[in-house]
Computed example of a mutant assay.
Amino acid sequence: MRILTGATWTLEQPRRPAPQMGTRRIEALSSLFAIAALAVVAAPIVMEQSTDGTSSDRAAAPAGAPSAYAPAGGEFMFAGYSGVPYTYPSDVSIKKTGVHDFTVKEVEWEGKPFVNPIYYGARIVRWLGTGRIGTMLDFTHSKTISRFDQEAAFTGTIDSAPAPEKAVIRSVFRKLEASHGHNMLTLNGLFRLPSFTPRIYPYVGLGAGVSLPHSEVQMANSEKRTYEYQMAGAVGQALVGIELRTARVSYFFEYKFTLAPYLMPLSERDGSLLFYDLWRQFSDWLSGEEPPGGRLTTNLVSHQVVGGLGIRSAPAVAAP
């Protein structure tokens, strides 16, 4: 039941259903992926530390061979990381012909990086030539969850009626988040800056790619929800970091800035696997079918501070 009185607007909310088995399974898989990514790159450390950097190892190195700690071209690095994001408040707009055409002003987003599913990332880095320039394929699993206790300003129409001037987010939405992933997949160019020690190398990077969020949107007065992976648009990122190199393992600390303009089709269906959900979205687009719930737009601008470690392949050494 909806009650309109002056500038206030409230809804009697139906009881929220218990989490579905599919939700629990997605949460468990995402956590296992994060743990596995970190465990795989951490495994060699114990074996490495017993010999890393000892004088006997240096003495055994053939004359003219490149240092194990200097950047070298032709090497790969496979890495995992975790971190803490901050996403600026942004306007959220929903348009559905003849039903909704409204904007929520300055929605505040929470990242909750250490609440399941946690913040994590994985990447593949390839350094070229002299080792100063490289490329990186980077996947980041962040989160954006609206603060349901926030009182926000509204403009436009909801259910063909004027929207309230102000309302608490939870009185309008049951769900407004990407908690199974404000996911970003980017291809980046990297450039190493001059080093001030033999083991520590600063670097910068710039890249672009696609946003692949798990969109979770549901109006408070509707039993239908959008709960699936989607391609929501392009994403860009800039980064600056520092790499601490040992013989075969690198530790890195990094600041990333990301910009992701979202366009979410509100399909009002529950999805399953990423590739299957994306195929259904593509099929809908190909058929020209409009999403039954309309479309949601917003711009997510984030700061992210991350730390991680990676295993490097040994670069080729020319024969004497």
Rank of each mutant, 00 (worst) to 15 (best):
I3Q: 09
A7T: 08
T8W: 01
W9T: 00
Q20N: 01
Q20M: 00
R24V: 00
I26D: 03
A28N: 13
A34R: 03
A36L: 13
L38W: 09
A39S: 15
A39V: 07
V41E: 02
E48C: 04
T51F: 10
T51Q: 01
R58Q: 14
P62Y: 09
A65P: 06
A65H: 09
P66C: 07
A68C: 02
P71I: 00
P71F: 02
M77P: 00
G83A: 11
T87A: 14
Y88I: 01
V92R: 07
S93F: 06
H100D: 15
W109H: 15
K112F: 07
P113L: 12
F114D: 15
P117G: 12
G129T: 06
G131Y: 04
I133R: 07
I133H: 13
D138P: 03
F139M: 13
T140S: 14
S142L: 14
T144C: 11
T144A: 15
I145D: 08
D149E: 15
A153I: 01
T155D: 13
D159L: 06
K166R: 15
I169K: 00
I169V: 14
S171T: 11
R174L: 12
L176V: 12
L176R: 05
E177M: 10
E177P: 04
M184K: 14
T186Q: 13
T186G: 07
L193D: 00
F196W: 13
F196Y: 10
F196Q: 04
P198H: 10
R199Y: 05
R199M: 08
I200M: 07
I200Y: 04
L206G: 13
G207Q: 05
L212R: 02
A220I: 13
A220C: 14
V235K: 04
V235I: 09
E254F: 00
L266K: 07
E268L: 14
L273I: 01
L274V: 15
Y276M: 00
D277I: 01
L278Y: 04
L286H: 06
S287R: 14
P292G: 07
R295G: 01
T297P: 10
T297F: 14
N299C: 03
S302C: 04
Q304A: 12
V306D: 12
I311H: 05
S313C: 05
S313N: 10
A314I: 10
A316E: 12
P320Y: 00
